[in-house]
Nucleic acid binder design. Sequence first.
DNA 1: CTCTGTTCTAGTCAAACTGACTTTTACAGG
DNA 2: CCTGTAAAAGTCAGTTTGACTAGAACAGAG
Lengths: 228, 228
Amino acid sequence: MSTGIDLAVSTVIFALRPGDAGRLVLSIPLVRRTRDPFEGRWSLPGGAADATESLAATAARKLAETTGLAPAYLEQLYCFGAPDRSPSGRVVSVVYWALVRADEAELAAEGENVRWFAADELPQLAFDHNLIVDYALWRLRTKLEYAAIAHAFLGPTFTLAELRQVHEIVLQRALDPANFRRQIESSRSVVPTGEHVTGGRHRPPRLYRYDGSVQLVDNGPLTSVAVR
Amino acid sequence: MSTGIDLAVSTVIFALRPGDAGRLVLSIPLVRRTRDPFEGRWSLPGGAADATESLAATAARKLAETTGLAPAYLEQLYCFGAPDRSPSGRVVSVVYWALVRADEAELAAEGENVRWFAADELPQLAFDHNLIVDYALWRLRTKLEYAAIAHAFLGPTFTLAELRQVHEIVLQRALDPANFRRQIESSRSVVPTGEHVTGGRHRPPRLYRYDGSVQLVDNGPLTSVAVR
DNA sequence: CTCTGTTCTAGTCAAACTGACTTTTACAGG
DNA sequence: CCTGTAAAAGTCAGTTTGACTAGAACAGAG
């Protein structure tokens, strides 16, 4: 039985990258389409679903092919299937969203057909991809407020100021350092390593590590996201 | 381009139906499979995706074909695509969850191959459908606590006691009537009609109507779910 | 070596919210 | 007219939240 429907997998990839004034900017890599429909337009990385791979594995593979990176966080966003979303025929897209680490995202190669864009300054994209990115942004911001995922933008250890900066950039508002500390500590999602960062003209901050032993919320119906 | 992947649409349909002791029970209609794989096993209503319909419209149509009902609430749950979830080949299922009204669910015809089951007493189902129902149950219970969806189980008007009973059955715990009232009133999701229900041996309760003008939370990326 | 600017870290305090509980209202039925 | 029941309104203490204050600990300037 064939339904005459093409199945695709795409991914909205988020990273914090240095912008104009040296400040970190929430950014998304896009690929330029090299054929119709929407030739020349920017679009989300993705491609046809693979018959033997899991959907998440396909998303992770396309992410790696586009950016050379491995995701620190990967979750299914939504399945988009409006009949008219592609002019070339019926395409149903299973869309994932991913977080990659800032230090890795700096190394990610750009090219003629791959470029990073600020998440709030996107051009007009192919298909319904603007709608998809808007929804992914909403999910990222919503989930950041109740789930411990911000650490996925950072390395294995980080200060609370760095973690707070991630929240501030994503949520686009300043957060009180003392209240942020209280909130994070009460969630028990991070543990101090015992080390400190020296060199700043101020009291040396503690280093923390994400504590994966406390499962906080859902990652979808699967207990662990298998990407291989 | 054909991926060799079959695309299906299934729906987890929730309703409150009278059970043993006359009490309402959270129930799900299932259909018996009449062919391999899993012939004879119970499974979620669904079928192959239609090339011209939206995914939500297919879900609503399959729901109507199975139960004769129209959903009061319909939302995409998740897209399941593990490579080994069907022994007969690769099948990717876009799963929706729906709420139908109790008074309509009573009329829904049962047959040899369609039967309602208590949501917490399901037999072993075909494919990964037990996992899917568990996840749908988790989503229903989670969303009930922050979104105004309980009214979808009821008619156009209802008392707060009826609305509270819906919450108590779904969440499986007693709720304080006074605190429930305060919570619902502060959400502004219902408005009193001005009418009262008489006939009980107690103070006549007010009738309320759901106020759809206050958009409370997400229904997915689409502003309104189109089912046609 | 002391002063200064900075940020980390630990508190304080009032407003808002929450869960448990009490009181008053309004009916049906005996 | 009394009683049982549930609706509706109100009370109160414990918790959480946002705004704010204050001490701690460093680097660099003078």
